[in-house]
Design a protein around this nucleic acid. Structure first.
Length: 800
RNA sequence: GCCGGAAUGGCGAAAUCGGUAGACGCCCGGGACUUAAAAUCCCGUGAGGCUAACACCUCGUACCGGUUCGAUCCCGGUUUCCGGCACCA
């Protein structure tokens, strides 16, 4: 058979679609498998080979599961709200709806050309009314439960995109969308109280199977730290300055305090402070700095001492000065710290610069040179002196603070609340009404969806307000509570909203009464296996776990954690080894590969390139190697004859079926493919195989290269589709050879190999090894010191 | 700076409860088929040495050292690269 990929791929894709064989069954008595891949953002550029790799992993797993008899849900959809579409719409003066529809149509045809076994009856589009109605509904539930709040704060603002960004979207001081520098701006912002879920998100990780680095990144992002709060009395008042520290054991080494420039204590005690001008000047200087500047100039500590205010160290009653400095942030802990210069690098730098005392309380370093942050014996610390472990010292100090009522154990998180609004058009309208009488009122559930009004100008306003503010018919409304005149919120949700629950909608994609029926949810959840990119581990993954956990807490979903297992694929780099990018001109378009070599080749190649989770450069010649492999597979139809087994191939077949079966489970697709290549090399060497054996080959290759395998299956007269044919079994006994090749070493160096029966005993094996001429040569005139025999592996004779 | 991960032929990579390093693929070389080319099929392919040839020997998994009969794998140290976090108290 000739491998006419263009003809057979189209043919089988049509047949699959016609028969609907990849649509998840409504039969909830069968064992289920829910495989999830991250739905794409339908950009104008079309699909990228990276998408193909990202989807091919679970595509293979899902196809194998179907062949194993599972009821498989392997859905796809489009995360279509967002800035790139809106910016393109503004540039070309086209409505984002039109742009989105065009892009989705393009992505759909590309995905179908690759032959992915998605359930196309459950496609989700986050911008459709029937979908965003429920995004708004969940938000409303959060609003009811007090998880939504509004605050005026300094926010990360992108002057180019004219939007407020969350911390997650502005890492490194750059806008995640356009990479411009972020500025700090005071703004009214909607927040979701994700910090309330910090512990649930952290401890939820214990019950799931995530890739270790995925888990670690989430743990770091949540950033739980255990320590203590302590109150430092402000000299001459009954008031106290409250601090958070992870090192209460070092409290006898405190020689000053530092508060954030924005700390309210300054205004509160303005009348006592004698250098207000200097403080104000410093505060102004800090406000001008961008987040980036503030964190980049790490070495150079700046600050001003607050004249007229001092504090009392609760450990020893010593009076200490208070400074303001921008190395202390208002957003973490209490915005105030106790400074222990001897044992904290930042405090050390500050103390050196301002000539403050440095008191050693832990032995082990040289505080004349640098801060010592290690363990050691406590000194200069009254009741802690002599203690040698940090744990014990912390416990003692905590007892002391609690006993005196000036402090207690405490926990802090690095994670911040989620800034949840954008001043842009192409997003879900926030279903809140501002009433002059009632305040903020939620749009009634029965009025959802709150439709995005149709507009033809989408530019944000000059003051950074949402384009929706221009639509009077949208803005002006009546208060749902009191019936008086009110105004609608005009901000929209951030692009992460729609993707925070899409996996739930797939379970019951067309339900109009609920976001998904309880029955469908309890059958399909949790997602058995979720694969995606590492770049989504700290945003999408955290956000969606949060939304899901919220729904669990209010009884809307049956399981606490949405994803039972999470893996990640590595990038495909350009042929030059650099990250693919338009500007570098090293982007590979999947369409071109399908045109030239076919979808099967593309699918097998992206999985063969290297380890699935690591970044690997694209190589055109290697793609041709895969073409060669599949052509050889097609040609087996001319070689196959007769039924049953070919004795010379029997063991190789059992071994390969086992290898491929196991490797798929471990996502070791590259070695699974290599094993099938090795098998075909064996078949060509033997020169023949039976039709039954070809049927086995076609089935184990089917998840990787389904089109050609369907063609072979049809050629063999197989029933139905290869894609639904039973997954081949292997016989463990037949994977074990009767003889084993032993490596024979003398003094650890390989000198010969000998074939011995698989259950040979030590004495026989060593005797056989000694017969070997080479071995004798290296043993000549020497005394045997030791004889080592590792069953099935090696014989080593040690001589002197 | 802190926390992870990695380093193996000309190239992508295999092999780790310590046991024949380089499976599989690419590239390259040789041969068969062909009027010829492409395609296909077969053979070779870590480096160095030695040989007429077969054989054989030495070295070799970033670098230095250790444990062991035996180390790509374990331990200590160093270098480089990638990812994450980054004044988080």
């Amino acid at each position: 058979m000739k491998h006419d990929f263009a003809a057979i791929e189209k043919k089988w894709q049509e047949k699959w679609e016609e028969a609907g064989i990849f649509n998840a069954s409504e039969d909830h008595t069968k064992q289920k498998f829910y495989g999830l891949v991250e739905f794409p953002y339908p950009s104008g550029a079309g699909m990228h080979v990276g998408h193909i790799k990202a989807y091919s992993g679970l595509e293979v797993v899902s196809r194998k599961r179907r062949m194993q008899g599972y009821n498989v849900l392997f859905p796809i959809g489009f995360d279509a709200y967002g800035l790139p579409t809106e910016n393109y719409a503004i540039k070309t003066n086209t409505h984002p709806r039109v742009v989105t529809d065009t892009n989705i149509a393009n992505f759909t045809s590309q995905l179908k050309r690759v032959g992915f076994s998605f359930d196309w009856t459950r496609v989700v589009d986050t911008t459709e009314e029937g979908y965003y109605k429920w995004t708004q509904w969940i938000f409303r539930r959060m609003f009811d439960e007090g998880l939504v709040f509004r605050a005026t704060t300094l926010v990360n603002y992108c002057p180019s995109c004219k939007v407020v960004l969350s911390n997650e979207d502005s890492q490194g001081g750059k806008c995640d969308i356009c990479h411009s520098d972020i500025v700090q701006k005071s703004k009214d912002v909607w927040y979701l109280r994700i910090t309330e879920y910090a512990d649930k998100l952290l401890f939820g990780l214990d019950g799931v199977d995530y890739l270790p680095n995925v888990r670690l990144q989430q743990e770091n992002w949540i950033g739980r730290s255990e320590g203590a709060f302590a109150n430092f009395t402000i000299q001459g008042t009954d008031d106290a300055l409250r601090i958070y520290t992870t090192r209460p054991d070092t409290m006898f080494g405190v020689t000053f305090m530092v508060i954030a420039p924005e700390h309210p204590i300054i205004a509160q005690y303005a009348d006592r402070i004698s250098n207000m001008e200097a403080l104000n000047a410093y505060r102004e200087e800090c406000a001008k700095k961008t987040e980036f500047e503030r964190t980049q100039l790490v070495k150079d500590k700046t600050g001003v001492r607050i004249e007229g205010l001092s504090a009392i160290n609760p450990a020893n009653g010593r009076e200490i000065p208070i400074f303001i400095s921008d190395y202390v942030m208002m957003g973490y802990g209490t915005g105030a710290i106790m400074a222990v210069p001897a044992h904290d690098e930042r405090d050390y730098d500050f103390a050196k610069k301002f000539g403050i005392d440095i008191i050693e309380v832990i032995k082990g370093g040289n505080i004349a040179e640098a801060a010592y942050t290690g363990d050691g014996e406590m000194v200069n610390s009254d009741f802690l002196n002599g203690i040698t472990t940090k744990k014990e010292a912390i416990a003692k100090m905590l007892d002391y603070l609690t006993g005196k009522g000036v402090g207690e154990k405490g926990v802090q998180y690095k994670m911040k609340d989620w800034a949840f609004n954008r001043q842009r058009y192409w997003g879900e309208p926030i279903p809140i009404v501002h009433c002059p009488v009632c305040g903020m009122v939620g749009v009634p559930y029965e009025e959802l969806p709150l439709r995005l009004p149709n507009m033809d100008q989408f530019e944000p306003g000059e003051g950074g307000e949402s384009p929706l503010a221009k639509v009077e018919s949208f803005v002006n409304c009546t208060c749902p509570k009191c019936g008086g005149a009110a105004k609608r919120e005009t901000d929209t949700m951030p692009q992460w909203a729609g993707s925070s629950w899409y996996f739930l909608r797939y379970c019951d994609a067309h339900n109009e009464d609920v976001f998904a029926s309880k029955e469908a949810l309890s059958y399909w959840l949790p997602v058995d296996w979720y694969n995606g990119g590492m770049e989504h581990v700290t945003r999408h993954m955290i956000y969606s776990r949060f939304w899901h956990r919220f729904l669990y807490d209010i009884g809307e979903v049956p399981v606490a954690e949405p994803y039972a297992k999470r893996t990640a694929q590595g990038l495909i780099l350009g042929p030059d080894g650099d990250k693919m990018s338009k500007s570098k001109g090293n982007v590979v378009n999947p369409n071109d590969v399908v045109d030239e070599y076919g979808a099967d080749v593309l699918r097998v190649y992206v999985l063969f390139m290297g380890e699935y989770s690591s970044a690997t450069p694209w190589n055109d010649s290697s793609v041709r190697g895969i073409k060669r492999f599949l052509d050889r597979v097609a040609a087996l139809t001319d070689m196959a004859q007769g039924e049953g087994v070919t004795p010379k191939l029997e063991s190789a077949f059992h071994k390969t079926v086992k290898k491929v079966s196991c490797d798929i489970e471990d996502m070791k697709f590259n070695t699974a493919i290599a094993a099938m290549m090795a098998l075909i090399n064996d078949i060509y060497e033997v020169g023949t195989l039976t039709r039954d054996e070809l049927g086995i080959f076609a089935r184990i290759l089917c998840p990787f290269a389904p089109h050609i395998c369907e063609e072979i299956w049809a050629f063999l007269g197989g029933e139905g589709f290869a894609s639904l044919a039973p997954w081949p079994e292997w016989d463990e006994a037949k994977t074990v050879d009767a003889t084993v090749t032993y490596a024979v070493q003398v003094n650890g160096k390989l000198r010969a190999t000998i074939d011995l029966p698989k259950d040979v005993d030590k004495d026989t094996a060593i005797a056989a090894a000694k017969e070997d001429a080479k071995v004798q040569q290296f043993m000549a005139d020497k005394t045997i010191v030791k004889e080592i025999f590792v069953p099935g592996k090696i014989i080593n004779i040690v001589v002197k």
